[in-house]
Simulated scan of single mutants.
Amino acid sequence: MAESDIELLWQSDLMMAVNKPAGLSTQAPAGIDSLESRLHRQFARTDRYLSFPHRLDRFVSGVILVALTKKAARLLSAQFASRKTRKQYLAVVEGQCKVGQTGPQQWDDFIRKVNDQPRAEVCDEAAPGAKLASTVVKTLSLDLAADRTLMELSPITGRMHQLRLQTASRGHPIVGDETYGATQGGAKQGGATKQHTDRILLHAHRLEFHDPSNGRLIQVESACPF
């Protein structure tokens, strides 16, 4: 993808929140384009500390936090580990998913990483490597013509591909997510179908966390691009 400036959503002396584009890995080996390498160049931080207390999949866009000191990285990582952050995603899934139309509902599944493959699977609680994945879900709107549903997904846990797998396992893969069985690869915009070859229709819309410097609750949002 063509390089462009990364949108800065919020900043303090210890950290910043940015809007990660879809199709861009959070981190990558030296010489390969990534969010990390772009931030180093854009903010002239080549020789200064920069790390990520959480990740977004390459094909997912939206809010991501960047720690600018080791102390901030440690404190932010602790917030994610203790589930003191709140994350909200917007997703367009295939089919008419009417779960949560009358109010939020919670999905609970045991999932595990598939050996030697970049994907996860739903499994039995007693299966080796099984971990509980919990997400609060809400249907926002139904698109009958396109046979799609706009959903709000708020993960409680942070498992590998959690949202992608939980929607797909219920027969509603996220649009563009061929790894989990999606057959639709585009998003209708202005009456035309635009192909999103470098993204799935999953966006990290809102993130709540506590500022490591003063404990103040911060809420950062990124407008949905689809």
Rank of each mutant, 00 (worst) to 15 (best):
T26V: 15
G31Y: 01
A30M: 02
H40F: 13
D47G: 00
V18A: 11
M16G: 02
W10E: 10
S25F: 02
R48S: 14
F80M: 08
V60F: 10
Y89P: 04
V92Q: 06
R55C: 06
H40N: 11
M16K: 03
K20R: 05
V60K: 11
P21C: 04
S51M: 03
Y89F: 06
D33K: 05
L56E: 07
L35E: 04
A91P: 03
L39S: 09
L9F: 03
V93R: 05
A30V: 13
I32N: 10
E7D: 11
R38P: 02
A73E: 13
S61A: 14
Q27N: 05
D13V: 00
G23T: 13
L68A: 07
W10F: 15
A73F: 05
R45D: 09
T69I: 03
L76A: 11
S77N: 12
M16F: 08
Y89H: 07
M15L: 15
R41E: 14
L65T: 13
A72D: 12
K87N: 13
A44Y: 05
S51T: 06
F52R: 05
R74F: 05
W10T: 00
P21G: 03
V66P: 02
V60A: 11
L68R: 14
Q88P: 00
H40A: 13
A81I: 03
D57Q: 13
I64H: 12
T69C: 11
G62Q: 10
R38Q: 15
E36V: 02
L75H: 12
F59E: 13
K20F: 10
L68H: 07
Q27L: 02
L24F: 05
F52C: 08
L76K: 06
W10H: 15
K71D: 12
R55A: 08
T85G: 05
F80G: 06
Q42F: 08
S37R: 07
D57R: 03
P21Y: 06
V93N: 08
P29F: 12
S37V: 01
N19S: 12
A73W: 04
L56Q: 05
G23D: 07
Q42L: 11
F80D: 12
V66Q: 06
R83N: 12
S82N: 10
V63K: 03
L24N: 06
P53H: 08
S34E: 11
Q27F: 00
L39V: 09
R86W: 07
Q11A: 09
L8A: 01
A22F: 00
H40T: 07
S12M: 03
G23R: 07
L90N: 03
W10M: 05
A28P: 01
M16T: 06
I32K: 14
T26K: 11
A17L: 09
K71S: 13
R58N: 06
P29I: 11
L35W: 09
A81F: 03
R45W: 10
A67I: 11
M15Q: 10
K84Q: 15
D47R: 14
N19W: 01
M15S: 04
V66G: 06
T46N: 10
P21W: 02
L90D: 08
Q79C: 01
A22C: 09
R48D: 15
E7H: 08
S12H: 11
T69W: 08
L76W: 05
N19T: 00
D57Y: 11
G23N: 09
Q42E: 12
A28N: 09
R48K: 15
V66D: 07
L65A: 11
Y89Q: 09
A44L: 10
D33R: 05
F59C: 03
K71M: 09
R41A: 14
